[in-house]
Design a protein around this nucleic acid. Structure first.
Length: 328
RNA sequence: GGUGGGGUUCCCGAGUGGCCAAAGGGAACAGACUGUAAAUCUGUCGUCUUACGACUUCGGUGGUUCAAAUCCACCCCCCACCA
């Protein structure tokens, strides 16, 4: 049996990745069945379908979608956990002869899935707590000095102020007995091989995007659409379910801002403005990531992405041809 | 009309004679990124292509002083309260 390729649609938030995926899915309908798989760290939360821009019922009806909206707000997902879940979905697709279309803007998740990630076991929560507390008490530069003694190679790569990475390195060391550098070395070989292939499947990476200044308009109108679609009610319901803003699910852009608004700590205009600013800043970070980390085939956003208007084939004939012939 | 408070670099905001191109935060720009990644972190951020340098800024105009964002005078705006 022929190995189907893996299609990957990445790019900054709000550029229309999901819509493009559907256009592609529909254009491909004649060739082979497909399955859209989420590669976005926030669209996994089931209580924020609107705010995290998950595909709606209409979209979901158009073709199978996986890994969307399945996590509760208090639950945490990580790059490693995501990679395992997505790996299983890819295997599933292979069994069924479906062409997987990965869609999402979480660069690290895509990288972990396609390029592999160090096989570090889960670290006990007490160990994490311990370093977290120590970092609070001693400040990150002190822990960075400590890390420099234990794992100079990794310490040299990160900044003394980067408490998230410093505590993680220390957690891994005390939790597993090996340094992060050691763990990274365990999978370095595979990572190099996996750049353009995944378990023997060809990977076609498509980027959807626009320069930041042009993307702004899309981001702004998208926020208004979310608001009209009931973003506030969604946040309100989520708050009733989990009134802890520090819970993992609340960290999404828009969620956090709306929480402040609901608490009366920001007025509506401030909330909207912040939401927009943060979204824009995030899109910029993503652009930087994709510029430096991945080589994508950039494509314009599908501006008129109304249901049933998928004309991927006409817009990107060569790209479509490549995908289709790889799928056949 | 009276009294009090205030006008600082894109925004917020510190600064009350020299150590001030001016704290801090935000925004912006550039960047990093292997389990929190919609996260976390870095650099730049008045102008002069680089600066040990030069030049122009702190409502306006004059003045005091070796030296002013900081002191004085007048003026223009804003806010609060009283009328």
């Amino acid at each position: 049996m022929k190995k189907l390729p893996v299609i990957c649609i990445a790019g900054p938030t709000g550029a229309g990745k999901s819509a493009l995926a559907l256009e592609l899915a529909e254009a491909l309908a004649a060739e082979c069945p497909v399955c859209v798989i989420n590669a976005d760290s926030r669209q996994v939360y089931k209580d924020f379908p609107i705010i995290t821009a998950q595909p709606g019922p209409d979209e979901l009806a158009r073709c199978p979608h996986r890994l969307y909206g399945f996590l509760a707000i208090e639950e945490k997902i990580t790059a490693g956990a995501y990679a395992r879940l997505a790996e299983a979905e890819l295997a599933h697709c292979a069994e069924q002869g479906r062409l997987p279309i990965l869609v999402g803007g979480t660069g690290l998740y895509l990288k972990s899935l396609l390029g592999g990630i160090a096989p570090i076991p889960q670290i006990a929560p007490e160990v994490c707590r311990y370093w977290q507390d120590r970092c609070d008490a001693e400040a990150s530069p002190a822990l960075h000095r400590l890390l420099t003694e234990q794992d100079p190679a990794y310490a040299a790569k990160i900044h003394p102020n980067d408490r998230q990475r410093i505590t993680r390195a220390l957690e891994v060391l005390s939790g597993t007995g090996h340094t992060l550098s050691w763990w990274h070395a365990q999978q370095a070989e595979g990572a190099k091989l996996a750049q353009n292939a995944h378990n023997g499947h060809a990977v076609i990476k498509i980027g959807v995007g626009l320069p930041l200044n042009e993307l702004e308009t899309l981001l702004s109108t998208r926020i208004d659409k979310m608001l009209r679609a009931g973003a506030i009610a969604e946040a309100e319901a989520a708050r009733a379910l989990c009134p802890r803003p520090e819970a993992p699910g609340w960290s999404g852009i828009g969620c956090a801002e709306l929480y402040q608004y609901l608490e009366g700590r920001a007025n509506f205009a401030e909330c909207r403005e912040l939401w927009f600013r943060n979204t824009r800043a995030y899109a910029k970070r993503q652009l930087t990531w994709f510029k430096g980390q991945e080589k994508l085939e950039w494509v314009q956003p599908p501006l008129a992405s109304l249901p049933g208007q998928g004309n991927f084939k006409d817009k990107y004939p060569e790209l479509f041809h490549r995908v289709a012939s790889a799928a056949r």
